[in-house]
Design a binder for these strands. Structure first.
Length: 1029
RNA sequence: GGGCGCUUAGCUCAGUUGGCAGAGCAUCGCCAUUACACGGCGAGGGUCGCAGGUUCGAGUCCUGCAGCGCUCACCA
């Protein structure tokens, strides 16, 4: 065996063994209890980043732990088609070649996206395997697989049929760059330096003007009213009046509405930032502002849409009264139009004022374009319906609900629990502010909406004649309805009747027929989250598991055990999965627990972002530190409250050395590694940083290669992997023969101590994992392996290891237990060691520590510890030994005694009994030549120390006595003990403390005072002795 | 603006129901000791963000303030 663990040598081999053995495959037919985790399917947009590595390390630790606990584990892997994101990256690539989506047919374009998807899906799956993820790869899903498509069709049809899906002309978040609607959660709010303009609108009767304040003057083309607060002192003077809109010439009313904020000068709230800038008159543009839309509804205002889907001014989307002057603005972009409108107002003396104004404006989370609230016809899921929103809220565990919990007695009610608990509140509040969910996207990549429509005819027209305004869908009884289609008619805003057919899953036989009847399929696709929301069901075969050979999976693995995901996902995805799973599966929750993991940040506390290039590729860490180091370190950092800060370093491709790069500030304000970096070894050579490559500011070449990144943060895990590797080397070298079986009665105190520590570590690990405390799990492994096993047990075992078969058996058993305990975090190194450890153990047993044999560690049993293994007496004794050894080592260290030099301990009866009771262990661990009775006279050059209140000293530290050093050392001890004594005395001198503190605590304080006093006296005696010498 | 979190050693973070402040890394000293220098043994380093309060006792509980971060909302 090599002196240190070399991940690159072992990982590919181990990965092969796992995959060949099929040990990660779920066993739905087995009698073991099921444990299921559904991977949050990563986007096929790009390769996995460090955040994925964290989430997958978490899920794999849980999956491997459950598997070793004897459960039937299904960790379902898969990827997500990410409609807008994937389409955008492909379109961007086409744009480099000067092409656009519309240069292709829909089919040809989708084929190109498909090719991209295939490439990245393969990358993602191979990354998962590189990390050691124990997914059931045979069941890998993609959200556009036939099985997922069937679920989408079935779900859509049922929601449509139940009236939970509707179509309507509403203001949506419109991305003019990609020309699609977006859901609220796809909009990113960004701070922008804008301006506030004050525009004068002349009153129609010539009696003056009103001044409106706006940040978006271009929308005035679509104004259909001016609003004023009825409590505004000026309201009466304009009551019933109208204004003539400049440029357009449209005459519009002045309406009164409470929504309008009054300026501070007229009674507005000075604390309200809006009141600071408000003029008291609000231009109302129902087609271009959500609040104005509401005002429009309240006052029955006209809706004038002055923009096209590209965000440019247009007279073809609902603007009919275009004046000759306004005509000149048609075709201008939003920004050009803004400038033009302001120029006109300025020219005409109607621009009263303008000032800088900071505002936050929505941007598309994909294209980055400014979002336009735009009027268009879209599909919505009525998530605010109690059947959906109410079901999600009732799923919450009552104890985590803030306020009166709505959970009822229905199946699944109260069945959802959040870890950490505080995220339950986020979930709850999100639902309380929920709006209907816009699910149509004007894209080509995604699940096509399964609805066909035509202008109403026949039965549709007859039924529709009675359809109300407002777009409500009215069922139509028809032959198509009898054959499974959901047939509806509705009255559109323009009064025309639209007839709709939603075909069920498997209902495509009707397509030719209805298309012949004039029905046309909706061109849009569904929001990706619609299929993601069905992930816990679709991956298990819903709605028809038999059709896909998945009988029984849905019943067995849904609800899954836990969903592990990121914070921002609580709102959209967890909610939607909960609503859909409950709605379609009789109230069942999709998972019992939701674990929210931390966010990974770079060394400056900035979120890692691929587009920014400040992130770490997990493959780089695997390259520099190994997969185990990556996984262990991430788990170790995963606490309840802190995000993970991982400073990024670079690896010099010329020398292989790691170094801290030069940082610079990106235009976005982020701290990033400068595009070009000089080699720290040879300043003549340079390299390109990942920011350089991502931003296009530098291009990697043979002379200036792209540098990999790394982080010394992962040294922790790498060192631990080497530690377990070397512990195994030592044990295997010292236990050459197959291990015997040992009974508990055969064990000495040292063995009983380490076995007690093993039992404790297993207990801690189980408790930690069951509550998603990954850092505590990692620490329990670390402490057992490094501190207890290596530092103390193996050191203490050295003198006896080679001769004592019983010691060898225990050593091997503990090593075996350690590899099992560590396996969920570090699967590769532990699996690599496993065959040798098992061969040497050869079925030998240690009574009380059950470690069933197995060919692969991945499916070996988790250690089972009998209660007797916990040995408080052995632990207490060992702690005394550690106390004495530490005291001696401390003196040796301070006096710089070389390790090889043996010293003589002079001890009183208590310490001598301790030493002799441990059969030479203290001598070995503390480097003692002999132990002698403490007599009243001490040799010069000796060093004294108090131990359990008795004076002990050490002789033979150095050849030359150094009284000065000894004096100052003792004075330090005395000062320390004196401080302790004063502290305890102070407490006990406090009448309130003695009277009110629990008697047990007071008693402990008394004991500690006595011990400190005895130590102090011993040290003072030693100092006095030194003075005499 | 609403909600949530954070502020403890140079750095990254723990700190259970209030009861003498911890770990890893970094620093310093000793050590080529036959598992491991990705190592061993020691050491130094903290008025626990600030100000009040509750309590016999506060890093821990309460109030206020400051700074940082996340998230939701806000385009007058």
């Amino acid at each position: 065996m090599a002196k240190s663990y070399r991940p690159q040598d072992e990982e590919p081999r181990i990965r092969q063994r796992w995959l060949q053995s099929g040990c990660f495959a779920s066993q739905p037919g087995s009698s073991r209890s099921p444990y299921c985790i559904l991977i949050p399917p990563p986007n096929v947009t790009a390769a996995l980043h460090l955040g994925h590595a964290l989430n997958n390390s978490i899920q794999d630790a849980l999956a491997r732990h459950a598997r070793m606990k004897g459960m039937d584990v299904l960790w379902m892997p898969g990827t997500d088609h990410a409609g807008i994101a994937t389409q955008t990256v492909v379109e961007k690539r086409l744009a480099l070649k000067g092409k656009r989506r519309t240069d292709f047919t829909r089919e040809a374009f989708v084929a190109q996206v498909q090719a991209w998807k295939d490439e990245y899906e393969a990358t993602i799956l191979s990354q998962l395997q590189e990390m050691g993820a124990s997914c059931d790869f045979g069941r890998t899903r993609f959200t556009m697989d036939p099985v997922c498509a069937a679920a989408v069709r079935a779900a859509f049809h049922r929601l449509f049929d139940e009236g939970l899906i509707e179509r309507g002309r509403r203001l949506v978040n419109w991305d003019p760059a990609t020309r699609t609607a977006l859901a609220d959660d796809e909009v990113e709010m960004k701070d922008v330096d804008g301006r506030m303009w004050y525009l004068r609108y002349p009153l129609e009767d010539g009696s003056g003007h009103v001044t409106v304040a706006t940040t978006r003057p271009e929308t005035m083309l679509g104004d259909t009213a001016v609003a004023v607060n009825p409590r505004d002192p000026l309201a009466a003077s304009v009551r019933g009046k109208r204004v003539r809109l400049p440029i357009v010439g449209r005459v519009i009313p002045i309406v009164e509405d409470d929504y309008v904020v009054m300026p501070v000068s007229r009674g507005g709230d000075p604390a309200d930032a809006k009141a600071q800038v408000a003029s008291g008159f609000l231009k109302v543009t129902p087609a271009h502002d959500p609040n104005d839309w509401e005002i429009g509804i309240r006052h029955g205002l006209a809706v004038v849409n002055v923009m096209g889907p590209d965000g440019a001014i247009s007279d073809r989307h609902g603007w009919t009264d275009v004046s000759p002057e306004a005509k000149a603005l048609v075709g201008l972009s939003r920004d050009e139009a803004r400038k033009a409108v302001v120029d006109r107002f300025r020219r005409d003396g109607l621009l009263e004022d303008e000032k800088p104004w900071k505002q936050t404006v929505g941007h598309s989370y994909r294209s980055g374009a400014r979002i336009e609230p735009w009027l268009s016809e879209q599909w919505f899921v009525k998530v605010t319906d109690d059947r959906l929103r109410g079901a999600a809220l009732r799923a919450m565990e009552p104890a985590q609900f803030d306020g009166e919990a709505p959970a009822g007695q229905a199946p699944g009610d109260g069945g959802l629990r959040f870890y950490p608990a505080r995220y339950a509140r986020t979930f709850q509040q999100w639902h309380e502010n929920l709006r209907d969910w816009c699910i149509s996207r004007q894209l080509w990549w995604g699940h096509r909406i399964p609805v066909w429509s035509r202008p109403a005819a026949g039965e549709g027209a007859a039924v529709g004649a009675a359809a109300p305004a407002g777009g409500a869908m009215v069922p139509v009884a028809s032959a198509w309805a009898n054959r499974g289609a959901s047939h509806r008619v509705r009255r559109r805003d323009d009064g025309t009747l639209e007839e709709l057919l939603c075909l069920p899953e498997g209902g495509d036989a009707l397509v030719a027929e209805i298309e012949a009847a004039g029905f046309v399929q909706d061109a849009d696709v569904l929001d990706t989250w619609f299929s993601s929301a069905l992930w816990p069901m679709s991956t298990l075969g819903w709605p028809d598991p038999k059709a896909f050979g998945m009988q029984g999976l849905l019943e067995r693995y849904n609800p899954s055990a836990v969903l592990s995901t990121a914070r921002e996902i609580i709102t959209l995805w967890v909610s939607r999965m909960t609503m859909f799973n409950r709605h379609f599966l009789g109230g069942r929750v999709p998972f019992r627990h939701v674990f929210i993991h931390p966010v990974i940040q770079d060394g400056f506390g900035q979120r890692m972002s691929k587009s920014l290039g400040n992130g770490l590729d997990p493959r780089d860490i695997i390259h520099s530190h190994g997969a185990d180091a990556l996984r262990y370190t991430l788990l170790d950092m995963t606490t309840d409250t802190q995000d993970l800060r991982v400073p990024v370093e670079m690896v010099d491709p010329h020398s292989g050395e790691s170094f801290t790069p030069e940082f610079t500030r990106a235009p976005s304000g982020h701290q990033v590694a400068a595009p070009l970096q000089r080699s720290p070894r040879d300043p003549a050579k340079s390299m390109v940083s990942s920011y350089g490559a991502a931003s296009g500011l530098a291009t990697p070449s043979e002379r200036e290669p792209l540098a990999r990144n790394t982080s010394s943060r992962f040294d922790l895990g790498r060192n631990l992997a080497t530690k377990v590797w070397n512990a195994a080397r030592f044990v295997l070298a010292n236990a050459p023969a197959p291990a015997a079986s040992v009974r508990r009665a055969d064990l000495d105190r040292l063995d009983r101590w380490i076995l007690s520590r093993v039992a404790r570590a297993v207990r801690l690990a189980d408790a930690a994992l069951s509550e998603y405390r990954f850092s505590d799990y990692a620490a329990a492994c670390y402490d057992l392996l490094w501190r207890d096993f290596c530092d103390w047990y193996l050191e203490a075992a050295k003198p006896s290891a080679k001769q004592d078969p019983r010691r060898q058996a225990v050593m091997l058993a503990v090593l075996d237990a350690v590899t099992r305990l560590l396996h969920p975090a570090m699967p590769f190194v532990t699996e690599a060691l496993w065959p040798a450890v098992q061969a040497r153990r050869a079925g030998g047993t240690v009574e009380g520590l059950a470690l069933a044999g197995s060919e692969l560690l991945a499916v070996a049993a988790w250690p089972q510890c009998a209660d007797e293994l916990q040995d408080a007496a052995a632990e207490a004794d060992f702690q005394r030994l550690q106390g004495l050894v530490n005291a001696i080592r401390n003196i040796r260290g301070e006096r710089q005694v070389p390790p090889k030099r043996r010293v003589i301990l002079h001890a009183s009866s208590g310490a001598r009994a301790l030493v002799s009771g441990w059969n030479g262990l203290v001598e070995a661990l503390a480097g003692l030549e002999s132990v002698q009775e403490a007599r009243s006279t001490r040799g010069s050059g000796s060093a004294a120390f108090p131990f359990e209140g008795e004076e002990c000293w050490i002789d033979g530290l150095v050849d030359q006595a150094d009284a000065g050093a000894e004096r100052s050392r003792l004075e330090k001890v005395i000062a320390d003990r004196r401080r302790a004594v004063q502290g305890y005395q102070g407490k006990l001198g406090n009448a309130g403390y003695v009277a009110k503190a629990p008697p047990k605590v007071v008693e402990e304080t008394r004991a500690m005072l006595a011990a400190a006093e005895a130590d102090l006296a011993a040290a003072e005696r030693a100092l006095a002795e030194l003075g005499r010498a």
